[in-house]
Design a protein around this nucleic acid. Structure first.
Length: 253
RNA sequence: CCGUGGUUAAUGU
């Protein structure tokens, strides 16, 4: 059962919904975790009707099922349905709270996010990260930083979030020294750093930094620079950059 | 106290 569910979840995660459903249908038995995996697959594929249908058809539901449904509504931008789901849950765990918080954060509702954060019975690293993003999105870099400092522990996502806050506001020095202090970095860290230089008016420096990225052929950092050239009205440079991308074998998507 | 685990929540164009 564990192996079947792992297969199911892997297919669902890769977006192979049909294969996931095939596994689900062929499984000799299904427990609530298998149902939840199938539910999450539909949610990720953004087939809301199927997600809701599965949810209603499940023989039993736990908080993971409810959280998956909440998350499905959030993905589709149905804030009210997400809220109704949250309110209608028989019990709310720490993920339920951070899930609804993420909905408000992602959609830029700082007031609602803040209210929910303070009403939460407990905070996880995700709750803090969501609030950090909510502040950052609304332009409150200092509050984002305060939220970061208030966290009991930090991971790469939290660090990337604050780095992105600096980057979005073009605070190059802050971003640079913060980036240098990271115990580990991923492509998102690098992209955020590029963005700091791009938004801080040092576009050619940002371009040069593409060469320093460990995974040089990730398309997102290149697209970031391309977008920055376009925003600044340097269309000739943008076209040249696009040509360089072709030469590097980076597909323009 | 720490680590691990078949399903759900947070970061870049």
């Amino acid at each position: 059962l564990v192996a079947w569910t792992a297969m199911l979840a892997a297919n669902a995660k890769l977006g192979h919904l049909a294969r996931a459903e095939k596994v689900f249908n062929e499984m000799p038995e299904r427990d609530v975790i298998a149902w939840n995996a199938m539910l999450a697959g539909c949610a990720r594929a953004r087939i809301l009707s199927r997600t809701k249908y599965l949810f209603d058809a499940m023989p039993e539901r736990d908080s993971v099922s409810w959280n998956a449904l909440l998350s499905a509504y959030a993905l589709e931008g149905h804030l009210e349905l997400a809220k109704e789901t949250f309110d209608g849950m028989p019990e709310r765990d720490i993920v339920s709270w951070s899930c609804l918080l993420s909905v408000y954060s992602l959609h830029g509702h700082l007031e609602r996010a803040s209210e929910l954060f303070h009403r939460s019975p407990e905070w996880s690293i995700v709750s803090y990260s969501c609030m950090l993003d909510a502040f950052s999105k609304s332009g409150y870099v200092d509050d984002a930083k305060a939220m970061f400092n208030a966290m009991p522990e930090w991971n790469l996502i939290a660090r990337n979030s604050l780095l992105d806050a600096y980057a979005q506001h073009g605070e190059i020095q802050q971003a640079k020294s913060f980036f240098d202090s990271f115990p580990e970095r991923d492509d998102i860290s690098w992209t955020a750093l590029l963005n700091a230089f791009a938004h801080g008016g040092q576009l050619s420096k940002a371009r040069d930094m593409l060469e320093l990225i460990p995974h040089k052929h990730e398309p997102v950092p290149w697209n970031t620079i391309l977008a920055a050239f376009a925003r600044s009205g340097r269309f000739e440079t943008a076209m040249q950059h696009l040509h360089e991308m072709e030469l590097e074998g980076i597909p323009a998507d």
